[in-house]
Design a protein around this nucleic acid. Sequence first.
DNA 1: GCTGAGTTTGTTTTT
DNA 2: CAAACTCAGC
Length: 849
Amino acid sequence: MHEILDSLNDRPGDADPDALRAEILKGLTDSQRAAVTATEGPVLVLAAAGSGKTRVITRRIAYLLGMGVPPWQILALTFTNKAAGEMRERVAHLLTDGPLSRMGSPERVLRGLTVTTFHALCARLLRKHADTMQGAPGWGLRHDFSIYDSDDQAALVKKVVVDLGMSTSNWPARSVLSLISGAKNDLMDARAFAARATDFNTKTIARIYEGYEKGLRLANAADFDDLLLLSVRMLKESAAAREQVQGRWRYLMIDEYQDTNKAQFVLSTLLVGKDEGQASPNVCVVGDPDQSIYAWRGADISNILDFEETYAGARVVPLGENFRSRAPILRAADTLIRNNKRRKHKDLFTKKPGGEKPRVILCKDERHEAAVVLEWLRSIVKPGQENGPAWKDFAVFYRNNSLSRVMEDALRGAAIPYVIARGTAFYEREEVKDAMAYLRLIANPADDVSLRRIANKPARKIGATALDRIESAAKQWGVAMFEAMRTADRVPDLGSAAASAVRKFVETVDSWTGAGSFLGAAVPASLHDLVSRVIRESGLEGHYKKAGEKNEEDADKADNLDEVITSALEFEKEYDAGNDPAYADEAGVIAAAPSGAEPPANEDAVPDFLGDLASDGVDVPTPATAGDSFVPPLLAVLRAYLESVALVADADKVDPARGAVTLMTLHAAKGLEFHGAAMIGLEEGLLPSARAMESDPAVEEERRLCFVGITRAMEHLIITSAKYRTQRGLMERTIPSRFLSELPKDGVTILDQSDDSGFGRFEDDDAQPAWGRTRGSFSTERASGGGFAEHKSVPSPFPVGSMVRHPQFGIGRVEAVTGAGANARAKIAFREAGSKTLVLQYARLEAVR
DNA sequence: GCTGAGTTTGTTTTT
DNA sequence: CAAACTCAGC
């Protein structure tokens, strides 16, 4: 051990291992210490909210390094890039200012340490090894694959549905995709899915799934789920890939383990070599079952609940002490979460004394609610006050993004700075996606979905019919559409005008890659050069400039295209400098692993992401379309760039929002903490969401979501509920969320401001509200079926229980009727087609006796 | 093939 | 209330 440590040390002898380790453990509680030092064998850290689990993980990494474990043997996986970035930063901090600084330069000590997300890891693994799987039946993925986001997925599903001769309105892409995604999360491919399908509905989905998979493979593309699914398959089937991975990492850490799905679970067992009979792998998972909020996208809470069974002899370390919130906030969270039936109880406690009770404020409507939040913010934040809390210490949480609007208006009106950690952002804009589609076509000429997107954008006389003809020719010839375009003259039925338009398009694309070897066309020298040429020469820039002049709304689209060039330039800089933490640190992932504890003789032999992809190595064959003049490194940079665009969520990039109140969804809030937090929209149908109200497990997940929100707050917490809320243009009476009545009666302050016109004053903190009265009103409202339920009294021509006939779905039984008039919908269980919700006005239903 | 007016439809959360 | 979609008219 000592020798290894010394070899890593610039100043050998300075880092006395014992002293070093003691220093790493300084300031930790006993249980945290136990979690950090249990380095051998499987460990489950049951971390409560605010118990310092990130701290535990970072110290654990430091501790391993301090024990002399080479950094390239350590792999830490997170769900978001933000979490990974933070963790890297914290480790780096320990190395520069903390105990590890005595071990040598951070670059040196960290070289090869892998801290990344599941998806990024899998993307790297696939880029590295996908080509070796070519022989496997139905594989079809090559190293230059595209990554499809939900838009691309939807486009593909729509196409498949149309090709199958079905209607896209009966089989909406979104819902079809969620089923397909669910299957993939459970590691079910199209065949396995089809084998299990029994009813008409599922059988049809299975057919779509099959076509969708074919489409993906034909386009040499992987969707988000594929990154995991195919990595698992590859590790199972390719001994070479498996050996390289398993020989490399000896210490695996997984954050937010409660959110892993089946694919991620299996992947993790493969990474640590459990399948290979590794009896007691060094895997350490950290999570909190009470914060599992991703069941809807396949997260399987039993992964964490059954950890001890999966890994025999696992050590369990509970971290119950909360270092974040004051006692009253913690008590509210604890009381709420106890209402969940399926859970392991964990005692939450804090040593922080005092603190104010969370406030529940019943408001008139959403505008009043925003005003209340504003007043609350102002009552605590005093600008100009030196050491007081600032805007950045506050956040507003909501269940869904649509609720942010009113809040934004209010904050803007009050000139309070704010940022939204929103889902829809830069890379989801139309013009940006267009530019990306061009780039993806260059990186992966088989990418038919991208090709279809931009072939006629801007309009260049390659219409839908022309594309369809090209596609059928391509299918016949067994090549990608872009390939077929090269011989446009031979595409059956393609008019000469269309053919020449196509020829011109191909020439344009080729001029960027040098593939056509046209005289005089200089090949781009750098990524941003390529990107700017694509944007200009494709005509996108002109197209959106023109659109901007005409239409006020499109005015900034051209600017956004400029921003794409800037982002490429920035990426390139970091990439060139080898400085991009998100990429440089993944170093080891794809490189030949130095196995064993011996550090490689030559430091340069430590695997490095840059060296691997940028060098003209065996792993990056020149694509068929690229001529000699297109140097592989540029293609590699392009691919890495596209990958970062696809895998780095925009919310991750939101600048740590200094100086501004943060607005975000409850999901986005997980893992963060704020001095003060406001949760808005605590109403039935919102939180819990309308969909969740149908089943108990779903309501429990909503409760956990609420729990997550509450536990983000350190000092101040307000929870609001509006009596009336306007949604999709309609103002409706609401019912206060059931979660409000699950908070401790005497543990929260209730302020009913839903009737009086004046805004309450917060100095009246101790004015105990009539909880009984309020509570009573909750229950009467629910009992009398006010609000949503009131529509139910309107008589329907199809009473619940009656039998109906639908021209397409056949005979079914009415399960429920909701809404009235034009809004009337019926949930019908069809014998063949399964259960569907139909709008009575449009569904041509017939009563059957 | 493009435009713009009119129509329909949908509602969670995201790597 | 939007976004997405449809379709007639150029």
